[in-house]
Design a protein around this nucleic acid. Structure first.
Lengths: 143, 143
DNA sequence: GCCTATTCTTGACTGATTCCAGAAAACCGG
DNA sequence: CCGGTTTTCTGGAATCAGTCAAGAATAGGC
């Protein structure tokens, strides 16, 4: 995974037009997991120096809507994007530095997907965010 | 629960000064669960017409830090606050209208609190958000 | 009632995200 | 390979939640 033609296939498979900005955005998200929009813009501009931030925002929205990338946004953080999709994994977020790491679900079957009382809602996804402190910040505050 | 003197006790118990804005904010959060900051400001101003938005923001931060209210912020939503604390319940969010409802945890014991691989993080909270469509929006889109 | 630390007011400001109108590019059929 | 059509991109302005800062007001202890 990772070649330009792979990404072209992905876009076509999702019925999306193949454009340079979209390819660059897709590449950037695959290469920088959990990157915020600003980092993605910077990364994209290494390939295409003249893309507008609007094109990046738009591409990200389109790709998110198509399910090619996933948008995550823990409280107090800006939007971040990741490429691991469809495997129901979750995230640990550091309260101190905001770092994000992936975690597979503790329960092997779809975990808390069934709420005890769903209030009539039709639930299609359960998102789990673990809050804590990452190793780096932990040692930093202990010293 | 709900009288002014109750809230005074709460504030004193948390070593916080009892001020009119704080009492009004606390009351507003108790009366309007899952309200966003703007609604809270409006509600507060029914009692105290002259409070600044800054005072409300500050009170909310203070109360959150003291653990008297909880801040929740699903992706794509502004900050919201609720008064149910300390019982490890979760939320269903409507993708269409943004409505939020409470759900108790499906698993009776602390649920997904143990990640399969915590990457060295010290985890202190697991936040679960169920995404779906609420009954109202569901019927609205079917018709 | 007075003093001091904390909190509130006022008003400006930041920064992420969105809106808009025109220019450019991608896909389709020939 | 070439127009026509539709979608996307550019550039710039606008929005909106939330924050910052300095001085005025107030709670709580003595």
């Amino acid at each position: 995974m990772g070649t330009t033609s792979d990404f072209q296939q992905l876009l076509r498979g999702a019925d999306l037009r193949v454009t340079r900005p979209r390819l660059a955005v897709l590449t950037a998200v695959y290469e920088h997991s959990h990157a915020d929009t600003d980092s993605i813009i910077t990364a994209v501009r290494r390939d295409l120096p003249h893309v507008s931030h609007q094109a990046v925002y738009d591409s990200l929205h389109t790709l998110t809507a198509a399910g090619l990338v996933r948008r995550i946004q823990p409280s107090g953080s800006v939007a971040r994007y990741e490429s691991r999709i469809g495997d129901n994994h979750h995230h640990v977020v550091c309260r101190s530095c905001g770092r994000i790491a992936d975690v597979d679900c503790a329960v092997d079957h779809v975990p808390c997907l069934t709420a005890s009382d769903d209030h009539g809602f039709t639930i299609d996804e359960a998102e789990v965010i673990y809050w804590g402190v990452c190793p780096d910040c932990s040692t930093a505050s202990n010293s």
